[in-house]
Amino acid sequence: MTKHPQRPAFISRQVTDGDYFFLDIKTRKPSVLTVACGGLERCAPQYDVQREGFRYYALEFVLSGRGEYTVGSQTHPLRAGSVYAYGPGVTHRIRSTDRNGMVKYFVDFHGPTAKRLIHDSPLQSSNPMQLGRTRWVEMIFDMMIATGNEPKQAALMQSRHLLNVLIMRLATDSASLTSDTSSSYETFVKCRQYIQTHHAQLQTIEEVAQACHVDRAYLSRLIKRYAHEGAYQYLVRLKMQHAAERLVKDKQSIQESALAVGYDDAALFSKVFKRIHGISPRGFVATIGR
């Protein structure tokens, strides 16, 4: 099963880059809950999608940037940590209001229990939910994208399980999902965007703190609070995620990928890569395939 077949018409072309998976976009009425497709989109600054309805139920999560979500006559702001859902028959509009565009995950699904899954979750309201801690959401979406490399039946089963875990976790955390507009969260978002943009050149969290004009210890507490992991681990993990993309999508060598994320020593890079991903760069390429 290919991870990037020709994109169907309902996938927007208003993106600068995307990492998609397509599991079952041909079946009209599946007999069980089925994940049709999903992925990660880096939306262009002019991204503006308007639909009278949609074939699937959809759940979207904003990783970075800002935008607006309009459903019916109500328009809601979107920012990093926003989660929202829509489905068949729901007129909606999603647009970026960020000069750098939004980055967002999405998953489209259908089947006899899809409507109930949304209705019984905190997403039944048209209002987007605002997550404080988002690392677990990113992990679930990343695992879902990875199912695109599995045999179809295994991928369908795994993605269904991950979707249920995602919805259940949102329900569990709903009491703490508030419209957090605190200065601490805004500071975290600013610093996270800086790390995402400059991760290749960054070597220490002190560099991030200095560039963002915050205290290093305070920044570490923010990352621990909202990303749910240590500050340096967060930086290293981001580097290794981009390195993995370069190895597979850009077909770079291990040395090239190491240099691209700031490692002059390929052996050290391989050691860190294995610690983060649980597999060596060479093994990763062999497993995922060129």
Rank of each mutant, 00 (worst) to 15 (best):
Y84F: 09
Y218H: 13
E256Q: 15
T181Q: 11
G53H: 06
H199F: 13
L219W: 06
N164C: 08
L219P: 13
V35D: 00
L78R: 00
Y232T: 14
I254N: 07
R216N: 09
V62R: 00
L222M: 11
A85F: 03
V15P: 10
Q124S: 06
M102S: 03
Y226G: 09
K224F: 06
R66W: 02
G65W: 01
R79D: 00
A114Y: 01
T187L: 10
Y105M: 00
C191R: 12
W136A: 04
D142M: 10
Y47G: 02
R282F: 13
D180Q: 09
A80N: 00
Y69V: 05
R192D: 02
A286K: 15
N164E: 03
G148A: 04
S96G: 03
D17H: 12
V272H: 10
V49N: 07
S179T: 08
Q6K: 15
R99L: 04
H199Y: 12
R116T: 04
T178C: 04
K29P: 06
Q130L: 05
S73V: 14
R99A: 02
T34F: 08
R42G: 01
D180G: 12
P281W: 11
T178G: 00
F22I: 14
K29M: 07
R95S: 02
A243R: 03
V35R: 08
I205G: 05
F10W: 12
T34R: 13
R169P: 02
E60Y: 09
T134E: 00
D17R: 13
